[in-house]
Amino acid sequence: MAKAKVRGKVTFQEDICKGCGLCVSACPVNIISLDNEKINAKGYHPATIEDMDECIGCASCATMCPDVVITVERL
């Protein structure tokens, strides 16, 4: 798959994520998932991205996040 022209970088403040998954369903390139291997300080599975190269920096995840967990940068 061709890489997107605009690239983004998403940072999750994992400790305050409540694992609601609103970012997961908001992501247009479907790269966000809840990390079932990890449990954060609040006791939730935090959101994570494995393939950051696919991120287009649209900030849809951050727009939907109710807990301001997400910071988005554009490369």
Binding site: G8, K9, G57, A59, A62, T63, V68, I70, T71, V72, E73, R74, L75
Partner: peptide, 12 residues
């Protein structure tokens, strides 16, 4: 690298 989304100062 430009930050396009970060936490607002309007929240504690």
């Amino acid at each position: 690298m430009a930050v396009v989304f970060k936490k607002t100062k309007g929240l504690t």
